[in-house]
């Protein structure tokens, strides 16, 4: 086991997969000479050169399309969006092309491309750089959507995503790049897509959290334990699509209470979908209505106090847990 930041774990995953498979290349804005806008690709260009690490013009739709076409023609591109906010420019390629190609070609053309980059809020980068887009992409059959929350998950899931034959939306979180965690050694360490992870076991209430809300939910769980003797289980789906609803259902069957914490806006969010699926799969096991903590329904403000107010935090999650526990 090595202790790595999420940034370095991602870097390792890329490096190992580039070495493992000649068809893997990394393309995006500033990924090569500049070492990556967030340094996830640090050192890779120096090591692997122009063929494997490619700087693009600022042309999101264009290089996303190159990723799709190259994947159809047999390569395994890893396309970096400097942030997922910019992917909206490329969404035609992701949604109308990558997601649907395998199906509309009757199963002939696989699109093994990974689109990756930081998703959600950062530090006071305001409205156009702070959106969490996972719900939008999760809405399209054909795409897989991944949101890791630890260094080990980041590495294991990225390696699996690169090896996957489908287009994968791999969403990191800028606030979390520096978070450290233990990562198993070895080039063969992978984590399968579609398998949730119970980050903390508990008996009284389940929190489903992902990406940025996982560490917050864990803090909230500790607080509930210390102050109210409430035992909280924290489930991290890790992959939004395919969603491991079974693990969440089993947790809710145990705890009878569910709080969903997510960084995205609430309307038609992944949390809304999970709430529906829990109603479908564990209705008779609920002791309280499901609560959801999301970012407020407003574009992200710049001012620090407003940004803090907009986002989920420990207190908001604690309040929700107390509510479902009738405390």
């Amino acid at each position: 086991m090595a202790t790595l930041t999420i940034r370095d774990a991602l870097n390792q995953a890329l490096r190992e997969e580039i070495i493992r498979d000649d068809n893997v290349f990394v393309m995006g804005e500033e990924v090569a000479e500049y070492d990556g806008a967030y340094k996830v690709t640090r050192g890779l260009w120096k090591e692997f050169g122009d063929k494997r690490i490619i700087d693009t013009p600022i042309t999101e739709l264009g290089f996303a399309a190159v990723g799709v076409g190259a994947a159809m023609a047999g390569l395994r591109p890893v396309i970096e969006f400097m942030t997922w906010n910019f992917s909206v420019l490329a969404s035609d390629q992701i949604i109308n092309h990558a997601a649907k190609m395998f199906y509309m070609s009757g199963g002939q053309f696989k699109v093994p491309v990974v689109f990756r980059g930081p998703n959600g809020s950062a530090f006071q980068v305001s409205s156009q750089h702070s959106h969490s887009l996972e719900a939008m992409y999760a809405n399209f059959p054909g795409l897989k959507v991944v949101q890791p929350s630890t260094a080990a998950d980041a590495k294991g899931l990225l390696k699996s995503s690169i090896r996957d034959d489908n287009p994968v939306i791999f969403m990191e979180q800028e606030r979390m790049y520096g978070l450290k965690g233990e990562v198993p050694d070895g080039d063969d360490f992978t984590i399968p897509l579609g398998v949730a992870d119970i980050k903390r076991e508990g008996t009284d209430c389940t929190i489903v959290a992902r990406s940025m809300t996982v560490p917050i939910a864990l803090q909230a769980a500790e607080k509930m334990q210390a102050e109210f003797d409430v035992s909280v289980e924290v489930v991290d789906p890790r992959t939004i699509k395919p969603l491991d609803i079974e693990t969440i259902v089993n947790s809710v069957k145990k705890t009878n209470r569910l709080v969903i914490a997510e960084e995205s806006h609430s309307f038609a969010s992944v949390g809304a979908e999970i709430a529906y699926q829990i109603m479908d799969g564990a209705f008779d096991h609920l002791d309280a209505p499901i609560k959801r903590i999301s970012t407020v329904e407003a574009p992200m403000p710049y001012a620090k106090n407003l940004e803090t107010l907009a986002l989920p935090d420990v207190d908001k999650i604690v309040a929700a847990v107390k509510e479902v526990c009738y405390l």
């Binding site: 009878n256 609920l286 002791d287």
Partner: peptide
């Protein structure tokens, strides 16, 4: 008014 698990 009964929660589902309580009813069950």
């Amino acid at each position: 008014i009964v929660s589902p698990i309580a009813a069950r």
